[in-house]
Amino acid sequence: MAHETTHETIHETTRPAGHPANGSDHAHHSISATTCLMVFAALVIGTVATVWTASMDLGALNTPVALAIAIGKATLIILYFMHVLYSKWLTRTVVISSFFFLIIMFGLTFADYFTREKTREIPSLYSSDPILKQQ
């Protein structure tokens, strides 16, 4: 950690380490009005589609369809309205990892719920037969 740096390096590095000077940071953030209105239209169409598909009996598919549309709408909002499409990798990493850990919570919780019935089929654990239970 000595201060014996040469002049060139000082010149190179007198900016915070977390802060590259030559990045394309100054690309302007906000999206154009046209893009914004197109996203708006997509969101409205998505809402109508949600209601429309929900009014049909698709059996087991109702929820997956609704979720797919919702995820699509959410993605549009995150990418365009929340500027993630134009943001740095760090912001994107935060967004992705929050959903990643959410999926872990869902996935491992349901690893339990989806297999509970199967657990009950193991005779030695749940059988009323005392001999089987002992094993």
């Binding site: 872990i104 491992l108 690893a111 339990d112 509970r116 199967k118 657990t119 654990l125």
Partner: peptide, 22 residues
């Protein structure tokens, strides 16, 4: 640390298969 929490729950009536995974 996020993918191991079920090892606190082996005797909680959690599914045995989830237990194995955890």
């Amino acid at each position: 640390s996020f993918i191991v929490w079920g090892h606190h729950m082996y005797v909680s009536s959690m599914s045995i298969y989830a237990g194995m995974l955890f």
